[in-house]
Every structure is written in structure tokens, then in C-alpha cells.
Design a protein around this nucleic acid. Structure first.
Lengths: 249, 249
DNA sequence: AAGTGGTCTAGACCACTGG
DNA sequence: CAGTGGTCTAGACCACTTA
């Protein structure tokens, strides 16, 4: 009695077949690393067309249970799909989900080699020139929400006149104008106390608790595109994220 | 000269067709909200079979450019796929990416109605009984990494004997044993100073900076499964996440 | 060279949407 | 009710892997 033999089921055949195969894999019948029957064999065994078999296998492949290779066959790669969650972000701007109009106001900018101390703090080992923008982030006429340092690889950095009103979309500008899309972002979030210099720039008290976010932007080849380091006074900022289950059907 | 008319291209037809349609949508030919030609029309226009058209449309649908409804047709929902990033988590355990062996040691447990003050702090409005577990999280013989409060809806909570050695996988137990999988997790991360009670439990100093994470677990219907509230001394914990581009081809 | 999965065709029936 | 997308069949050729 498998889902395939159930005449009362109103599910499409390819779904029923997928469910049957999923149950068998969960039971370890074809165990991890072993081969699934070929598409042709499944057509015969379950008396369905190859298209139906392929739709069923597509579901299992999307669920990460099987891997398929032309000429080599289909192997089981997992007995069951772990429930998985994902935080999706529409773009780099969404990384910090505070108000859209939180503008970066530059206090200073310069192009020079990356300070070794900064590189160490950011957990990277690089050399070469970077455009360093130091500034406050927040809405006009409101207390600043963050004190931010951004380091953009010099050969990718926009001209100084340009980036001021770009908000946080610098990596999108680089993707568009320099054809270097960001492929990976690494972010660390930690707590810490405000230093005196930070407190002064932010109009807060030294020693006050603060949220510190550091981000590293990488291109497809793993090369650094940009670095950013922000300090948020505890009472002015909360990081919120929603993680959704990746289960589909 | 579209990708479809390119005879030198060695891409499959359905990919070429998808690329052609993607370019047209990007140009706003069928603008957002407008209808795409029907599958039948596309078959005629590009002289391919319906299966080929459907494979092409499947790609566009996966990219989030179009939405399809049986009987109603296909509409454009976006001119171009925004570069998008996702943090993927294999399970609830991975939410906090510190060492796997960070066990929760219960200091107290009780079942009672949720304290209104707690509900307010967690940003939820609920009633009913919850199993409240208050404890320390960390490896044995090391300073605790967090002070944690977990509130599990009473009708879903495992028997007291069970949950002790489950680590953080409580929601996975609920999904398996109670058939209530978690569909969404909302998390807020903020900074704050340790209260005296927290400092004492953690063996730290009151007023020290700390990272505070609050999580809400929801089922498919939006009902709360569990709540958790953790405080991490700043020097003992850093939250790290990797966001990968969702672009595929 | 035989067999695999990947692509493609030309049909068909169905559930559902909309006028 | 006509037309849509969803499912399904029975073929076919191809690129690729394995032996």
C-alpha cells in the first residue's frame, strides 16, 4: 500500500509517485549513496510515462533528497529533508531593516591602504587601496542611528561625488556599473560598550551598551568588494529578521 | 535578433526562450501587472512545443518574474529579478551557530499562563498555558554562554523528563511528535546591559554590555508554538551569519 | 557501445477562471 | 461556456558517463 496504489487519492500522479519514493528513501530502501532505479525502470514499475517520473524526481531533487547526473544515474543524497529556514533579503539595503530614508552622512573620506588594525578587526587579510567613508547613518533631524565605517575596494569605488546620495546601495552600484555583483555577505553581530570617540560622534554616553555589526562583501571569486563596520547605541536600534521554512508543497 | 533566433547558440530552446522573454519583460513590453501571451500563443509565435514553452515559463516563475494561475493566465509581477540574498539554516539548532554541544541546563521549570509582562516584552498577545523553562546554555565546565527563557505552548510541550537532553531541538521534537512543524521564526537582536539578576546567574558584572535575542516560533496558521529569550554577555558570544546570493544560472 | 538523464514534439484530457 | 494553465501519454533524438 503505497501512495501510488491509492485510487482514492486525488493528488496528481507525479506527486503520489514522489511521495512513494520519498517514503522508501526515508526507510532507507535506496540508502544514501545508492542508486535510485532509472527513469525507464520507474516508468515500468509504476506504469506511468517518463514525463510523470521526471516531474516526481524533480520534486525530490528540489527537496535535496536525490542528485541526478546525465549518463551516471540518480543517487540518494539524504534520507529526509531537514526542515530548513531561510532569511531572504531583497537587496543589500534590506540588510538593515530600519527606515529606508536612513541616509549615510559622510564625516570624512579618503583613499589609502587598509589599516592593518582594521583588517584584523574585520577578520580579513588584504592589501591594496580602499575608499574609506566614515559617517553617521540616520534620518535628518533625528539622533543618528549608527556610526559607520565603509571600506570600498578602490578600483570599484564610485567617484566621490556619486556615492553621497546613494544610501546604502553601494554594492548595487558596483554590480551595475562595474559588473561585479556581490555573491556572498558575511555578517557578525555582537554587543559592546561605546568608546569615548564613538559616544561623542553619536551624542551618547561612553560605556553605554551598543550593537556592533560588521559585514564583508565578496564577489563570486571570493575577493573582497567592500567592508563595513557599524556601531548602534542599544536604545536606537534593533535588528529584526524573519526566517521562513523552505518547505514548499 | 533575440536569443531565440540565434542559431549559433547551443543553449536549449527553453532556456533561449526564457532569455528572450526575460529581456522583453525587462524592457517593459509586457509591463508589470500585464498579461503574458498564453502558452498556446507562445508555441505558435516561437514555433516550439508546449512543453518547451512551459519549461521556459517555469524558469521565469522560479525567478519571480511571472505568476501563473490556472484559468486566469500568466501575469508579469516584476521587470527584473532583484539580486537577493538568503541566510539558510539547516534547522532550528543552527539559529545560534555556536558549538553544537551548547546544552541547556534547566534551573527551573513550571507550567502556567504566560506572564503579561513577558508577553509584552516578546511582542505577542496570547493567553493559555505555557511550559516555562529557565536555564543556562553552554558547554559543561565553561562559563555559560547565555541565560535563556523558553516558553512552549503547554499542549505541545514534551514531558518534563524528555526535553532535558534535547538540546535546542525542541521545535523539531514538536514537529515530529505533535505534527506541528514550525513555519516561521521571527527573531530580534538587540544590545543591552545585564541586570543584576542576570549578571549573578551568569557570573558576570551587572551593567556589562550584552546581546539579547528574542525568538518567536509560529506554525503554518500563524499560531505561536514557542517563545525564547536569551541574554549573552558581550564577550562570550558573537552572532555570525552568511548570506548567499540567490542567483542561480 | 550501451545506458543514463536532458531536451523536445504532438498530441490529449482535466480543473479552474472568467465573462 | 470558451479559454487558461495543470497533468499526462508515447514517442524521439541527443550529450554524456561508464565500462
Amino acid at each position: 500500500m503505497t501512495a501510488m496504489d491509492d485510487p482514492g487519492s486525488n493528488a496528481p500522479r507525479y506527486m503520489a509517485l514522489a511521495e512513494t519514493l520519498r517514503a522508501r528513501i526515508a526507510a532507507g530502501d535506496p540508502d544514501v549513496g545508492e542508486q535510485l532505479p532509472t527513469e525507464h525502470a520507474l516508468c515500468e514499475r509504476y506504469a506511468v510515462s517518463r514525463h510523470t517520473v521526471r516531474e516526481a524526481l524533480r520534486l525530490l531533487a528540489e527537496a535535496g533528497l536525490i542528485a541526478r547526473r546525465r549518463g551516471a544515474g540518480t543517487v540518494v543524497v539524504a534520507r529526509e529533508a531537514r526542515q530548513s529556514f531561510a532569511q531572504r533579503l531583497g537587496g543589500v539595503d534590506d540588510l538593515m531593516q530600519y527606515a529606508r530614508d536612513a541616509q549615510l552622512t559622510a564625516l570624512s573620506t579618503e583613499v589609502r591602504a587598509l589599516d592593518p588594525a582594521v583588517a584584523r578587526a574585520m577578520g580579513v587579510n588584504v592589501n591594496g587601496d580602499y575608499l574609506h567613508v566614515h559617517g553617521l547613518r540616520g534620518e535628518p533631524d533625528r539622533p543618528a542611528i549608527a556610526l559607520t565605517d565603509v571600506y570600498i575596494r578602490a578600483d570599484l569605488a564610485p567617484p566621490v561625488e556619486t556615492y553621497v546620495d546613494m544610501g546604502g546601495a553601494i554594492t548595487e552600484w558596483i554590480a551595475r556599473e562595474k559588473s561585479v555583483p556581490t555573491a556572498r555577505i558575511e555578517q557578525t553581530i555582537s554587543a559592546g560598550a561605546l568608546t569615548e570617540a564613538e559616544a561623542e560622534a553619536l551624542g551618547a554616553d561612553a560605556g553605554e551598551a551598543a550593537l556592533r555589526t560588521r559585514r564583508r562583501y565578496f564577489d563570486k571569486g571570493g575577493r573582497i568588494i567592500a567592508l563595513s563596520d557599524s556601531v548602534h547605541p542599544a536604545d536606537r536600534f534593533t535588528y529584526e529578521m524573519v526566517l521562513k521554512s523552505e518547505a514548499e508543497s
